[in-house]
Design a protein around this nucleic acid. Structure first.
Lengths: 200, 200, 200, 200
DNA sequence: CATTAATCGAGACGGTACGTCCAGTCTTTAA
DNA sequence: TTAAAGACTGGACGTACCGTCTCGATTAATG
């Protein structure tokens, strides 16, 4: 056992991740070849395949390592406000070039079971867990009803974001996010009764 | 001008559609080759490409022609009940083998602009229009609030269905659908005020 | 049954053979890649592999088809003269750029059993058979002794040619051929007794 | 300058040579990788490349160092008898597993100029020199004609051996060697006149 | 005895060729 | 003219190997 032999090159690892991220973000998963990624990283193809078993795993990693923190959870005054900011952040992320990366990975995951599991375990679930805590806090602070099913609530919130990312007509804009948020509040908030007459 | 020469075979057309539907439904878009579809249909590849411009268009057509009517809109006593039945129907459709077809097409659409347009125009929008009418009727009959934004409402309802189809852990089950429906009602229904448990 | 489907393209076939012959002749078997051959022939790589199972088989064929006739057997006045001309012809062939091709194939055959068989069956043996007939005629006409073993005689004649081709110092020249011939005659000819210098 | 630092390991050197000889002899040059040789020798690949510049040089060395003496020249009563024994010895060597080694090296030398030179200078020429001396002695003792060209004679003798090694159908047997010898004697011996009537 | 510097085993690295695969197009003969 | 059969171009994929490079550990001769 132990660490015998030449260690893996962290520079090569990072260069590959960066090249993959840049190329796939710009042109899409299918349009970018492994040779191209290796060449852009200044790396032999075998090095790439020594670090990742296939293109999908590499791009998945490039998402996690390089931009995993871009969707970090903001700290706001109240939990319900944190929720709103988090949705905004997610929408902005989807609107950004990174959205292409997510689209590519979700698409590829449909025919790659391993990638599907990785995407769920390493991308979706951590973020869902973050949202789960926010929702629990929002309930605790009295902003949301106590009887809501948190996972289903998350599906309602984020499902529509993914839906528009994947199938929408390029309209993941601010007003849409606002609608989602307002209607979510209307459905789950404790103060919705006062909103009944917003459009008299 | 006239129709000289051997006429196109309607049987071939149908056989191709059926073979494509069957194979892609069972094994997925990427795992099925065009040769295989043509062979299964007892047809030459050129015949296939004379009827459709590419594999995606063929599979898209197989979805529309052969099972487009499986998600027809049911007639229930009330509009709000029709909505519920429609969601159920859609969920059952996604759970069925046909769900694989939808997943494949959504995935492929991420790297095929033409397919993306076709999927929206010919699959999504007709169904959204049907739901739109149901929602309008539900508003008219007093089941839903009058101030809701219908398109956003649809995104909330169906977005989470697609989200679970594409990324969920095989849990598009009845209770989930029920949750969606109940929470949608809570958010958009006119009767939510009667829920006496909102303040403990 | 019969000849259904698009027939193999003879033009592609020939273009590949010509490109392979030209490139391998000039630069050697190992130094030329399959991609390069295909590109030089203006052909997809799959076409190449549809016509031949691997690079070795292709180059073997290029030898046989394109230059198989370059070592045709000349007609001379006498059989013994034909033999001399045939050796000259073979040596000239080895000296020419074609010699590289032979060297490449013999080399490759050492680690490719299939190629080795093909080279023997399709290149060596036909030529040996031609020489065999010449030798028989030479015996019949009284130019060679009747007790010689023809196959061994061929090995003596041609073995040294191949030896110099493969391992010699670029000296497959005319005087060498002459030496081979003279010594062969000395060993196998009926007129050797007239050499009065054998005893000083 | 001094010899500071850890000295090279003679054991590693020998182990590599032995492993290379064994593996290449059994399976052929191309079929054996450098990694495999290093692993079989219980040695790092870098050690191997510190002792030899490339695989070919290593295998060449393994031939010379380990079995260079197997083709040593026997001492017989007469020079002509020594010649006969030497040919026998060479044929037996070619028939043995060592023949594969020679075949591999000759093959590789066709695309490796450096190896070709090394093989000629370090393997062929020393042995040719030995035979040259034997031939000179045979001439001196009156067993061979004095007008023969020694180098061409060697080509005739050994060329056919190499030819059968590389291209023959596994028939480097005793009778063949005998044929070579007899016909060589017939061509170059002083006593051939008495053989004219061997087949009346 | 401690220092020093080259070697050791192990294995990752860049580069390059191979042979497989598939989509969409083209070219035959038969109907 | 269309159909079935299947060959065609083009390009991506993942594997294999060579010869080089980089580790931490080892090992003699030097100081």
């Amino acid at each position: 056992m132990g660490t015998i032999g030449r260690p893996r090159s962290q520079e090569a690892h990072d260069a590959i991740l960066k090249a993959a991220l840049r190329l796939v973000t710009k042109r899409g998963f299918r349009a970018v070849g492994v040779n191209e990624i290796a060449a852009a990283a200044g790396v032999g193809k075998m090095t790439l395949y020594r670090h990742w078993p296939n293109k999908a795993a590499l791009v998945m990693d490039s998402l996690l390592v390089l931009i995993g923190s871009e969707t970090a959870f903001p700290e706001a005054g109240s939990a319900i406000e944190s929720l709103r900011q988090q949705i905004d952040l997610q929408a902005a992320f989807f609107r950004s070039p990174r959205g292409n990366l997510i689209r590519s990975l979700v698409a590829e995951a449909q025919s790659d079971l391993e990638l599907a599991c990785a995407f769920r375990d390493r991308w979706l679930n951590p973020r869902r867990e973050g949202v789960r805590e926010i929702l629990r806090a929002a309930i605790a602070e009295g902003s949301l009803r106590r009887d809501i099913d948190i996972d289903t609530a998350i599906d309602l919130l984020y499902g529509s974001l993914y839906y528009r990312l994947l199938l929408g007509s390029d309209t993941l804009d601010e007003p849409f996010v606002d609608h989602i948020y307002q209607q979510f509040l209307a459905g789950h908030g404790v103060l919705y009764a006062s909103d009944e007459e917003i459009r008299p």
